[in-house]
Design a protein around this nucleic acid. Structure first.
Ligand SMILES: [Zn+2]
Ligand SMILES: [Zn+2]
Ligand SMILES: [Zn+2]
Ligand SMILES: [Zn+2]
Lengths: 138, 138
DNA sequence: TCTTGAACCTCTAGTTACTAGAGACGTTAG
DNA sequence: CTAACGTCTCTAGTAACTAGAGGTTCAAGA
């Protein structure tokens, strides 16, 4: 049996976050000692590792809830898991695309200002005031 | 003089968000009608456009506050504006790099599952449970 | 001038995924 | 047995909004 601190050390998930996951229904309520402290089994540790990995890959709590549910029902079809992963990939790609457009504009903005002028003719401020200077939609 | 709804229509910023910006100190408190409704000048409209553009480029409220402050002091050095823009660019690049690592893993995960199997041997679930299958740190 | 419907007002609370802190209690090594 | 550290619950705070309730004001047409 592991204490919450041990779980935290082994997974890198902070203690309040573990309690938060429990409250959100991602982790089942563990056993308690006579003094009311949480005690986890190996299964609890494994599940927390699963959650942590999914969070690191950007899945939402909501998605993880569904994925865990599938994990708990091995006989179900994995269509939902596939849909969640695919949609997560789409999300990530959309975010990358948006950030790359921002990068384009920010490079332009940052390179046209050396930080040594006056605010009145600073390219950073000018281009924030005028979107028509931008090369992309964003 | 423009009503808040007109400002919203012209900038694409929603009405509650305009009020929020005012509360955050990004927009000065505008004049009011006898009936207590906000009435903006062209300067107010321009400033909201500035804020909107900066938000679209990912600057935080905190950064925008500093940028506006510079805009209001044309004689100041633009070093701060340069620093803010450069740091924003660094942020964006760091986010892109992270998302690209996630993309790598998600492509692997999504392509190894066709969504037609059982949860018990679904590659999505397997690889969420086991980070050692990953190609990158993330 | 009156009316009516759209626009506006303030205030509270909810969103996401945590994080921080207070004050009290439990556990364990020496 | 006691000191030091771990853990408990609960509340509130973070960023940047968004939604809704319940009430008031504005503007245009009859
Ligand atoms: Zn400059
Ligand atoms: Zn632009
Ligand atoms: Zn599958
Ligand atoms: Zn991994």
């Amino acid at each position: 049996m592991f204490s919450i601190g041990t779980l935290s050390d082994r997974t890198g998930v902070k203690i309040p976050t573990i309690r938060y996951y429990e409250e959100m229904g991602l982790l089942p309520e563990p056993e308690r000692t006579a003094g009311n402290q949480r005690r986890y089994t190996q299964a609890g540790l494994d599940r927390l590792g699963f959650i942590k990995h999914a969070r690191d890959l950007g899945f939402t709590i909501e998605s993880i809830r569904a994925l865990i549910d599938l994990n708990d029902h091995p006989d179900h079809s994995c269509a939902t898991a596939n849909a969640i992963a695919t949609s997560q990939l789409d999300d990530v790609r959309a975010k990358i695309a948006r950030l790359q457009r921002l990068e384009t504009e920010l490079v332009r903005i940052a390179t046209h200002c050396d930080g040594k002028g006056r605010a009145s003719d600073c390219y950073v401020l000018t281009s924030l005031a005028d979107h028509s200077l931008c090369e992309t939609a964003h």
